[in-house]
Design a protein around this nucleic acid. Structure first.
Lengths: 153, 153
DNA sequence: CATATACCCATTGACGCCCATATAATCCCA
DNA sequence: TGGGATTATATGGGCGTCAATGGGTATATG
């Protein structure tokens, strides 16, 4: 499986280390399996992460915005300047920068949520609440959700 | 036969393992025959499952949504963080995550129901009841049922 | 030199792999 | 075509490996 899926709740130890879930590590290309990027989510109080390869995809998305719009500058500033890279040790653990932990309200436990081509890190309580809210919003539009889930071919 | 059909009642052993019915295993593409995805059914207290190929399709559809829209996040959260992948061992067995068993009210036996391109896992009693209810609802609209069953080519 | 971070080693529990058996389905040949 | 033999499926259990976690120590970096 080459997608980030499912959710995991891992502890942050006294040194600030936390295990990237094993199934997430396996999504990273064998070449850069010891490095990921992290940045503040734009829409939620959470941290988003992915392999360095996805940077290109993010750049492309932003590039598709109108170059002269305010959004363009805002997005590229907000995202690119806030990106940090972090190393994964031999045991599969990494450090979450203090600023990002503050932003997400994370203390001693990190809740990982798969998002397909990337993942999010939340405070457990906030993350579960967010999942519930998302699901509720979508169920209001049953048609579109069913379309995504059951459409054939 | 490349569809999930019929129903099977298999035991969950002390380690939490349960056999995926042989005919279901044969539906999975030879390439990814040792992994399936599971998620909570939207409409019923049951678990739905299918091969990973279907998940990749879903990922593609979500990827086509507007990257910066709220729907994008709602879809990827609701779908990717709720989906779990699980491995099938050499004997054709897999583990049902505790959370999903709770959601479906499954304890020591899993009732598999073929649904064509996917399958459902129920508590036996609930599943049989659901089959009966479905059939009864359908028979109320005999006309549409006959249309589906007798339509040629 | 002081703090942060990477590497090494250890522990625990979960999971995958291997082997075994019983029952059911299929085959094969006289 | 009958009946024994072979194969497949569902199920049980032992055991090694890996993932998550904790801690000591070397090393880098300012």
């Amino acid at each position: 499986m080459d997608l980030f899926v499912s959710k995991y709740f891992n502890k942050i130890d006294k040194k600030g280390r936390v295990s990237l879930p094993s199934s997430f590590r396996n999504v990273l290309p064998k070449a850069n399996r010891n490095e990921i990027i992290l940045y503040k989510s734009i829409k939620t109080p959470s941290i988003e992460g992915c392999g360095v390869g996805r940077l290109k995809e993010i750049a492309k998305r932003i590039n598709n915005l109108d170059f002269f719009s305010e959004d363009y500058d805002d997005f590229s500033t907000t995202i690119f300047s806030e990106i940090v890279t972090t190393n994964i040790d031999k045991e599969g653990r990494f450090l979450i920068p203090e600023e990002l932990k503050l932003y997400a309200g994370i203390k001693t436990e990190a809740a990982f949520f798969g998002q397909g081509h990337y993942f999010q890190i939340w405070d457990q309580k906030k993350g579960l609440q967010n999942t519930e809210d998302s699901r509720r919003r979508l169920l209001k539009e049953k048609k579109s959700l069913r379309m995504i889930l059951t459409q054939q071919k």
